[in-house]
């Protein structure tokens, strides 16, 4: 039977016997069209019964099988093995450029497909992570409908417009699979950051017209490890198996929070300062915005000398060339503010 051959490079760790993770190469031959999950199940059922991973629905709706394939967090069940093999080949080709001046040849043996557990989470065994912190953050946004209204009529549903449903629907399809959190750069730098999944869940409820706790929700999200801690890497959007525009939803939360007057976080403050600078000069005037150069650089003398060299020596030369038609811009920004 014509089959698909691939080599998997599996990250293995058994807490009972291993002190640290190790890599294992396994060769598989499977029918065309097989997914990475089918490859793993084949390994577990026929080659090595000790391999442990989560899986259930096998069609991308339960969210169980999140893992890093070639370093990218994905669901194994909707990743085609051929695509993973091709990606591994490309990565190997790029890596081979290192140390050489000539482009790499494409005729090399198929590079192994790396399979390892999700990032930003402790590993329990093999490809199974401890997701308790992930769930705790989801629970912390109080992900249930909150309404101070009296108990609704049991024979009548609350009404909702189709447009409101469409807005809400953007956040509903989150599988809570952990792929976004796995590759989130903010989580890498700050493990207490709420994380994209919790923010998507918060968005889903902040936008639900039947919920009346929006202000409180946004206020909670504006805390130290909340939405302003997003570093805008967009890995969340990139990794989401349901193609949710996660980063855009986080932006939307920021817009909603700002509109509610929740502007105390230094991240929010900076946004406001940039906006004020743009209104004032047409530019995000770096010399006048935080972070101050002096906070970053130990040798302000270098800075000033560079600036002076460019401008001809005057301190006022720090300012960039002003934007033309500034009055028109100001009128536009004022009008925009009315429409937020």
């Amino acid at each position: 039977m014509a089959g698909l051959r691939a080599t998997l490079e599996l990250c293995r760790f058994d807490p009972q016997t291993d002190r640290e993770a190790r890599w294992e190469l396994v060769e598989v031959t499977l029918p065309e069209g097989s997914t990475v999950l089918e490859a793993l199940m084949h390994v577990q059922e026929h080659i090595d019964g000790s391999l442990a991973f989560r899986r259930s629905c096998r069609h991308g709706i339960c969210g169980s099988c999140g893992m890093r394939i070639n370093g990218c967090a994905r669901l194994a069940c909707n990743t085609q093995l051929t695509a993973a093999v091709e990606q591994a080949r490309r990565m190997a080709a790029v890596r081979r450029l290192a140390g050489r001046g000539a482009p790499a040849s494409a005729d090399v043996a198929p590079a192994p497909v790396r399979v390892e557990p999700l990032g930003n989470m402790p590993v329990i065994k093999d490809l199974i992570c401890d997701m308790s912190a992930f769930w705790a953050k989801l629970h912390a946004v109080r992900p249930w409908l909150q309404s101070l209204q009296e108990a609704p009529d049991p024979d009548r549903e609350r009404l909702m417009t189709q447009d409101d449903w469409t807005t809400l629907a953007e956040g509903v399809l989150c599988l809570e699979c952990g792929c976004c959190s796995s590759d989130c750069c903010s989580l890498e730098a700050d493990e207490e950051f709420a994380g994209p999944a919790a923010l998507v869940k918060a968005y889903r409820y902040a936008c639900d017209t039947r919920d009346d706790q929006t202000h409180r929700r946004l206020s909670d999200l504006s805390a130290e490890h909340g939405l302003w801690g997003c570093t805008r890497c967009s890995f969340c959007t990139e990794r989401c198996p349901k193609h949710l525009r996660v980063r855009d939803l986080i932006v939307r939360l920021g817009q909603l929070a700002w509109a509610e007057g929740l502007r105390a976080d230094p991240g929010a403050e900076r946004c406001g300062e940039v906006m004020a600078s743009v209104r004032d000069t047409g530019r995000a005037h770096e010399f006048r915005l935080p972070p101050r150069m002096e906070d970053i650089v130990k040798t302000p003398a270098r800075v000033s000398s560079a600036a002076r060299a460019l401008s001809g020596g005057e301190a006022g030369g720090d300012d960039p060339v002003p934007v033309e038609r500034l009055e028109e811009l100001r009128a536009i920004l004022n009008a925009a503010e009315e429409r937020e």
């Binding site: 817009q255 700002w258 946004c271 503010e337």
Partner: peptide, 8 residues
Amino acid sequence: EVQQVART
């Protein structure tokens, strides 16, 4: 930065 707080 502007986009993060002001959509329009």
